[in-house]
């Protein structure tokens, strides 16, 4: 039997707008002092559930690609993992149509009605296995915590006190922030374990 091949998109929800503060930073009346990278990567609201995210994607595909696109996408689209705390999600989509979903995600500028916040969704990794997407999510969370720590140095913004990540001076890791080989357009040999594990 022929296995259906999927792609796993790791995506971040960023909040570039000043007014959308989902959390209040303790002991900070004015928001001006919070470094930008912390502002952009703030936690999502609790109201943002995987169901709402799925609805955003379906609606986006429907407006961009119409019934054809929705029909192609709907059978394989699935939210595998969503964490409001880090605003990170992993979604699964069949390999042939992941670009449709990706484009629909790029066209999102606003979360729908109950939240109604401006947001930007950035796909940071396209992977053939969920494991790789997971590892990338962890790596990126680490990097962003480190950045925030470095940016917040001197100010007493408690960013990651409980995260257990050490602040490394001048860490080189965040230099390779790109996705040079992040898009797996072709089949990799080690892709057999694709559906074996669930994230989160």
């Amino acid at each position: 039997m022929v296995r259906i091949k999927h792609r796993y998109l790791l995506l971040n929800i960023l909040y570039p707008d000043q007014k959308t503060a989902n959390v209040r930073i303790a002991g900070r009346p004015g928001e001006q002092d919070v470094p930008y990278s912390v502002q952009f990567r703030q936690p999502s609201s609790d109201q943002l559930t995987p169901q709402i995210l799925l609805r955003i994607i379906r609606d986006g595909v429907a407006t961009l690609f119409g019934d054809y696109g929705s029909g192609k996408v709907s059978s394989s689209l699935q939210i595998k993992y969503f964490s409001p705390a880090t605003s990170t999600a992993i979604i699964r989509i069949s390999r042939d149509h992941y670009r449709l979903v990706w484009a629909a995600l790029s066209f999102v500028t606003r979360l729908p009605k109950p939240l109604d916040q401006p947001c930007v969704i950035q796909v940071v990794r396209v992977s053939g296995t969920i494991k790789k997407a997971e590892e990338e999510a962890i790596r990126r969370a680490r990097i962003s915590i480190r950045r925030a720590q470095r940016a917040g140095k001197g100010k007493d913004v408690v960013v990651a006190a409980a995260s257990g990540v050490q602040a490394v001076e001048g860490a080189d890791e965040d230099d390779d922030f790109g996705m040079m080989d992040g898009i797996e357009d072709h089949d990799a040999p080690g892709e057999a374990e694709e559906d074996s594990d669930e994230a989160g």
């Binding site: 570039p16 990706w102 484009a103 796909v123 357009d185």
Partner: peptide
């Protein structure tokens, strides 16, 4: 004109790929 209109480099590349420009 605002930050909300920016997309990541790879997102923009994907958009162009949808429009017919190879990756």
């Amino acid at each position: 004109k605002t930050a909300i209109g920016c997309r990541g480099p790879w997102d923009a590349i994907n958009l162009a790929a949808i429009w017919g420009l190879g990756q």
